[in-house]
Design a protein around this nucleic acid. Structure first.
Lengths: 153, 153
DNA sequence: GTCTCGATCTAGACTATGTCTAATGGTGTG
DNA sequence: CACACCATTAGACATAGTCTAGATCGAGAC
């Protein structure tokens, strides 16, 4: 794909957002800015270390937070127990599979909103629709939470 | 307020949902089923212990998860770093104040949705709009995250 | 009343996510 | 080379949440 955004090297993208490039930051960016998996910070750490073993956990957290501050990633508070990161910073919605915990992007125009009214005295900065459900045909009962066993005896 | 729902005692509500009442469960319910604060489990623990000191943390977690399983509470994955609980189990939306982290209920009809299309092969169980912003007049820059100091140097 | 059984409650160990700190190392400028 | 600055590191720390093993409670059987 050569759409004028992804054809630039990762290193150039970082510098274009005012981020000093370094070996570690490029390695994190190569994964985190290309994936569609909505990984958590620890998942990024594990993935990147496969090809770049000299990388501390603190650096991954620092780097991801830096990318968020510079507008390269968006943090999502949707998954249970952790923040996940989305390199798609354009407006869109999300669908959470309640059985697997997987998060899928939903195009902005898959939802037609006629009007939206924030609470009085509050200023709306952005919004999105969070859908929950499961793959068609599966009943989807008790949600997995932490361990695989049921959380209520 | 005597609207046919809240006029029943908490103990009766628990039994009506198939939950064996106990001193601890009633104490948790008195707070968690009445509040509009969207508390986390540890907040519930702290609040309830003010008037009911003999209460372990595990009991609070067990009890809240039981209430969720029985449909008395809805878990929300909106706030950073924790799950919060909402005794309003009717459909509604939420507004997150990005400065304070406070969560406010938004009535269902504050948003007019004309159509909504989940991803192919997925079954939509429920959905809600998550709005983010801040109180009018305040600029709302860096979001507080964990500690009060900036997370990116 | 007392025995028994299952449900509930408890303290504390444990795991996972995330932040902070102090020290180390690399790079550019003079 | 020396200095300053920034990135990186390991590990300590903080917090949310789960699990376990044992104590305790309560209701029915006798």
């Amino acid at each position: 794909m050569s759409n004028g955004v992804t054809e630039r090297t990762v290193s150039e993208r970082l510098q274009g957002h005012g981020i000093q490039a370094s070996a570690q930051r490029v390695a994190v960016a190569e994964y985190a800015l290309r994936t569609t998996d909505h990984p958590s910070a620890d998942v990024v750490w594990a993935k990147v270390r496969e090809s770049f073993p000299f990388l501390s956990r603190a650096t991954v957290y620092n780097t991801l937070n830096l990318f968020v501050a510079k507008g390269l990633l968006r943090p999502l508070v949707i998954a249970e127990g952790r923040v996940v990161f989305d390199p798609n910073v354009e407006p869109h919605h999300h669908f959470v599979d309640e059985e697997t915990g997987e998060i899928h992007d939903v195009p902005w125009d898959a939802v037609a909103i006629r009007s939206i009214e924030p609470p009085r005295d509050f200023e709306l900065r952005d919004y999105q629709v969070i859908m929950r459900g499961s793959r068609r045909g599966r009943p989807a009962r008790a949600r997995p939470r932490g361990s695989s066993r049921s959380s209520v005896k």
